[in-house]
């Protein structure tokens, strides 16, 4: 079977999202360059949409909080963004672009979904560990604020937990990345994916604060982006 015929044989399953990630990418690559294939799959998409309508049912309104979250995620940048960036620059100076080091991290995220999402696994055990760390002696809690919000619990041994991230989902080709400010250095504490949930990481040294940036998928060694959230340790 030719490659095109093989792709054509996958169109029905593609229209139903019933392909593996690899096959999906293969079909989508073929579609971008083949108008006949696009014409062939269009009515299959329409049938799939009708199947979806059939399962949606009449008048199933979402809770009001859903629109509130959408509105918040799509709102213009907050007016205090300049102040937040000023604090970031004060702490990092010119070191940001030159001395960031990718640190070894431990994260509980594992799988990449069909559309490039990093999906949250083991929500229960991580959340439980974070709660235990919060109550442990020597632990500190820092709130990240800015365009997105989150909370970090940092245990005395350097184990950290990112909690309650209120971060709008990113496109599949972008990711959130967590940075630890240690002295005058910025160290990557982990690549969180486009839709972060609870995660664990480890960082060494005297941590002065944390920041979140939006980077290309896979993360970067040193960031050239303004942080979307920043939190400084107190006490």
């Amino acid at each position: 079977m030719s490659d095109r015929n093989e792709v054509e044989s996958l169109l029905g399953a593609y229209a139903l999202d019933a392909l593996s990630l690899e096959e999906t990418r293969r079909v989508e690559t073929a579609l971008t360059g083949d108008a006949a294939l696009r014409d062939a799959v269009a009515p299959l998409f329409a049938v799939a949409a009708a199947l979806a309508e059939g399962a949606a049912g009449p008048a199933d309104p979402p809770p009001r909080a859903v629109w509130a979250r959408i509105a918040a995620a799509t709102a213009p940048p907050r007016p205090n963004r300049a102040a937040t960036l000023s604090a970031w620059r004060r702490w990092l100076g010119a070191v940001v672009a030159s001395t960031a080091v990718a640190a070894a991290v431990v994260l509980a995220f594992v799988a990449v979904g069909q559309h490039g999402r990093l999906l949250e696994f083991e929500r229960g055990p991580l959340a439980a560990a974070a709660a235990a760390a919060r109550d442990a002696d020597g632990s500190r809690v820092v709130t990240l604020s800015g365009d997105v919000a989150a909370e970090i619990v940092l245990a005395a041994d350097g184990t950290g937990y990112l909690l309650n991230p209120e971060a709008p989902p990113l496109p599949a080709d972008e990711t959130y990345q967590l940075w630890a400010i240690v002295g005058d250095r910025v160290i990557s504490a982990g690549v969180l994916g486009p839709n972060p949930g609870v995660s664990a990481f480890h960082v060494s040294g005297e941590v002065a604060g944390f920041a979140l940036t939006v980077e290309v998928a896979g993360g970067v060694v040193s960031s050239e982006q303004d942080p979307v959230a920043l939190g400084l340790m107190t006490g």
Binding site: D17, A48, A52, G113, Q114, H115, R117, L119
Partner: peptide, 21 residues
């Protein structure tokens, strides 16, 4: 095609991701 069909297809894709996870 209609915008509704596009949104429902996106919905299905996202839902399938979560379902498989």
């Amino acid at each position: 095609g209609p915008l509704r069909a596009f949104l429902l297809r996106d919905t299905h894709g996202r839902a399938v991701d979560l379902l498989r996870a």
